[in-house]
Design a protein around this nucleic acid. Structure first.
Lengths: 140, 140
DNA sequence: CTGGATCCGGTTTGATACTG
DNA sequence: CAGTATCAAACCGGATCCAG
């Protein structure tokens, strides 16, 4: 992946010996984590909370943008369950619920930093690539 | 996001002035990119090609694991359209199609490196967090 | 025989309306 | 305000079918 960095892999997928995860259970868990973390809404919420610190439910929604309440609720709860965000309910009327990143959530946000930088740095090339693909495909 | 690093943000989400992207079109494009890149299968395929270089269609599927042919085709094509992978068809019988990362795809793989390391480093804490959440919730 | 397109059933998502 | 309930639409996986 990252040039010049030796990655402590837990996989040992070597073609000559066939697929051979060192620990199947661990393999499945890491895959599961990636499956949840590599999610559009998770990333966007992570970014919002990373940038703004503590936010209320509807504030998160506003920062994220086009998210539906359902996905906001669902994703936030999943992130809470995984220990990425902390949810604090203030028992007042009207209700007041604060969301913020845990220390672990903060480190994940930091890990995603390079991906955001990549997206910002490459959007022009991606657009060009899409256009080229479109006419290459449409011109058939 | 990353402590000590000044990020060249294109957003200017400042609460005091309301949501105010510097360039709405650019904002939408970056969001779109994140939406596609922050996808389970995209990440897994990226990782597979990043680790193994050039792979055939079914080899990619095998390395990724549980992916269906449909999602494999779809994701691969999306990645090709975005300029992340290069698709080479050898007109032979039986068919032979090679997939590999473009230079841009390689840099994205590198950007995701930290996320993989994070997942590998935190799976234990996540499991613990889920268990705690479960009994906290189930004990109600 | 491989790469991939198509159809169908179950799941997830989104928009709207409703509650404490 | 912060959700939940409901229903329609989009999506995904699996099986099947097709082309080279």
């Amino acid at each position: 992946m990252k040039p010049g960095v030796s990655i402590p892999k837990i996989y040992d997928w070597d073609d000559r010996k066939g697929p051979k995860p060192v620990d199947p259970a661990l393999d499945g868990l890491v895959r599961d984590i990636i499956g949840k973390v590599a999610d559009k809404w998770t990333m966007l919420i992570l970014e919002a909370l990373s940038d703004h610190g503590t936010l209320r439910f509807s504030e998160v929604g506003r920062k994220v943008g086009d998210i539906s309440q359902k996905m906001l609720t669902k994703t936030l709860r999943q992130m809470e369950e995984d220990g990425l965000v902390q949810r604090v309910v203030h028992p007042v009327i009207p209700p007041h619920v604060d969301y913020s990143l845990t220390e672990m959530g903060g480190t994940l946000g930091a890990a995603f930093c390079d991906v955001w930088l990549w997206a910002e740095a490459h959007h022009a090339r991606i657009e060009a690539s899409r256009k080229a693909f479109a006419e290459r495909n449409g011109a058939a």
